[in-house]
Design a protein around this nucleic acid. Structure first.
Length: 275
DNA sequence: CACGAGACCTGTTCGC
DNA sequence: TGCGAACAGGTCTCGT
């Protein structure tokens, strides 16, 4: 479930539990979860490091530790939870054991941070140079750098279909399949429009739509789908995503689905025209 | 540079 | 009921 709003929700939920605590050890149950370094050195190196800060960049959870950074990417089905029991969770891939919480947080009883991931696509990096992974990403949608003018210029500088371009994390960081479809619908732009055909007013509309959709996602604690559940509510606010055949909430036309860049793409054929 | 296909993985749902 | 196909919130790599 993890696009920007879901990762942001997770970061906010974990922050008060993790900040200041020390990682006592790591248990790896699916070795390929670790992108860097190997399981052996990961366990050795993470031991004893304190968690200084819990943040997010794009769809990465970024934990600053005393010596390294811990980056976690949930991909399709990854999930993070806090636990007290030592019994392994159903899809557990990695478990970090934590020091006791500070005395003023004595109410916290969790002892583990658990990474679960049914499809095993998620990855974790322990590195002293997080920039090598994060610096190539596009701007954060809520940063000052992301402006309507920037977006218009960036769209014009390429010749790509809107849908796949917005999914490209080196173009703009944080959008995934759900929020891209929702943003294009709000901006009344067809997903197959070529990026270099977008006029300034349309770029402005898209900019507003991207921010509005992500904001609404965060306010609703992200979207929960299928059996991967996080307590988010945004799935109840989808206007087009996964709504094939349903009436468009704006004009009543039937929402259509097509495949673009191998991703299911949902849009309103009346609101989102090709011109 | 842009695009499509195939990989990486497992679970659920749908159609016959 | 059973069984295969299609589908799933993401990203990387390779060939054209």
């Amino acid at each position: 479930m993890p696009e920007l709003p879901e990762v942001e929700t997770i970061a906010r939920a974990l922050r008060p539990h993790l900040t200041g605590r020390t990682i006592l050890g790591a248990q790896v149950s699916w070795a390929r979860t670790l992108a860097l370094p190997s399981a052996r050195s990961f366990k050795h190196r993470i031991q004893g490091q304190q968690i200084l800060e819990v943040g997010r960049r794009a769809k990465y959870l970024h934990m600053r530790l005393s010596r390294d950074s811990l980056l976690i990417h949930l991909r399709m089905t990854g999930d993070l939870s806090l636990g007290e029991a030592s019994a392994a969770e159903r899809f557990e891939r990695l478990r970090l054991s934590l020091s006791r919480p500070a005395p003023e947080e004595a109410a916290l009883t969790d002892r583990f941070l658990i990474f679960s991931d049914a499809r095993k696509f998620g990855r974790v990096w322990l590195t002293s140079k997080p920039g090598l992974i994060l610096d190539g990403l596009g701007p954060e949608p809520f940063s000052d750098e992301f402006t309507p003018a920037w977006l218009h210029a960036a769209l014009k500088s390429r010749r790509r279909l809107l849908k796949p371009l917005l999914l490209d994390q080196t173009f703009l960081a944080g959008l995934g399949n759900i929020y891209t479809d929702e943003a294009l619908h709000r901006a009344r732009l067809h997903p197959l429009r070529s990026s270099d055909s977008i006029r300034p007013r349309q770029a402005q509309a898209l900019w507003e739509a991207i921010r509005a959709v992500l904001e609404e996602g965060i306010l609703n604690n992200g979207a929960s789908l299928d059996w991967v559940y996080r307590g988010g509510e945004f799935q109840n606010h989808f206007r087009v995503y996964d709504q094939e055949g349903q009436p468009c909430p704006v004009c009543g036309a039937k929402i259509r689905r097509l495949v673009v860049g191998q991703r299911g793409t949902h849009f309103c054929p009346r609101c989102q025209r090709m011109e």
